[in-house]
Design a protein around this nucleic acid. Sequence first.
DNA 1: GAGTGGTCTAGACCACACT
DNA 2: GTGTGGTCTAGACCACTCC
Lengths: 243, 243
Amino acid sequence: MAQVSPTFSPLYRQIKGLILQALESGEWRPGQVIPSEQEFAARFNVSQGTVRKAIDEMAADNILVRRQGRGTYVASHTDPRQMFRFLRLVPESGDLLAHPKSVPIDCWRARAEQEVAHMLAIEPGSPIIILRRVLQFGSKPVVVDEIYLPEDLYEGLNMEMLQVWNSSLYSLFETRFGLRMIRAQERIRAVAADHSAAELLQVNEGTPLLSVERVTYTYGDKPVEWRRGVYSTAEHYYLNDLT
Amino acid sequence: MAQVSPTFSPLYRQIKGLILQALESGEWRPGQVIPSEQEFAARFNVSQGTVRKAIDEMAADNILVRRQGRGTYVASHTDPRQMFRFLRLVPESGDLLAHPKSVPIDCWRARAEQEVAHMLAIEPGSPIIILRRVLQFGSKPVVVDEIYLPEDLYEGLNMEMLQVWNSSLYSLFETRFGLRMIRAQERIRAVAADHSAAELLQVNEGTPLLSVERVTYTYGDKPVEWRRGVYSTAEHYYLNDLT
DNA sequence: GAGTGGTCTAGACCACACT
DNA sequence: GTGTGGTCTAGACCACTCC
């Protein structure tokens, strides 16, 4: 009996779905090896080539990382190369190696306003955590972020935790709360620096800044973070490859 | 005798190179079908699977477009869905269908300054064409672009041509000069509207705007266009997917 | 029905990493 | 050496488009 058109999904996509489920359920942690293609082929009763195609897609999605001769790994924001994977800001000087440093400012509990709730796909009034921080390149403050998190996913997050952690936020979220950020979407506008942003970024009030709003998604396109950053573009620019 | 490591390139990549060469030489024009996988396999004396992998990569690169049951086509900026492929600006109203309209302002010959020459990888002082235009969504001016083109690639480009053409610039460049834009890179900053931009965009002088500089590349990563646009983000935003 | 791309299989061999 | 992913092949069948 043939599959009907609207429901049809090739075998390798079904395999992809099964592996995604296993990832979601935490069968392997970020940074760990997953079973070999042969093992999956045996487990799911398909050929190695079919498993390969499923894994190929997940590697293209940055969910898995292939390493020839070693195996296939669960992508992790703990990996130095992945740490600022979503940050597109680059210094004019071209120093691509210079990693920024995250400096927390404050962190408090609140209830979701209309807009935040909409972006996070939660009910207005739901408990959230709001977190402000500055990103520094060297000693220069370049970004001020205000970050909105649904509280139930980040229970126990507080200033001490942020101050102790001297790496990227996403690596903290992954390590401490088991959250794996898969993709994100940014909306960029130009705005004038308000008093607070001007002070933190050490620029004049009214200076044009990039406003970057980002929704970050985990498995199943579930939003788990919304943030709004203002970027100073005096000595840095936002770099985007179009393909 | 085995290939030495630094020179090694898998067969499917060599095939990709050969097909790219053929594309570059104009063996098939944009929008046309290319030979079937079987035909390529015979032509290059490899299996169909190897050709498939080469074409898969080119489809991922947006150089070719696969259409099941019909064949594989050379991607074209004449295709309505590809016309504003590199434009990331979206109306707040969410009307994703509303295609913008390009209105030429002026167009003149000049010699390349240092920066333009560097971006276009040509000698400073080389002849270039400079072109200004406004992009309108509905009747609203939203983008002012200043576009720098190496003259030898765009011989005969003039205002009349631009005024007659009521479609995207890239479709004009493709149709009239045989140029196929493959990829682009944008550098985005926030700037204050100067007198000229303010007037054209109908905003106050000093209004924060997005400054978007774009280098566009054809086959072989050869730059063939540099442009700088200022975007009004009062009713539109720049949308970027991070993966 | 003929031709195209899309999926799936099975098996061989290569390149690489660890031990 | 053993095991992993990476490449290449050959053949079968499916899904879609067009005649």
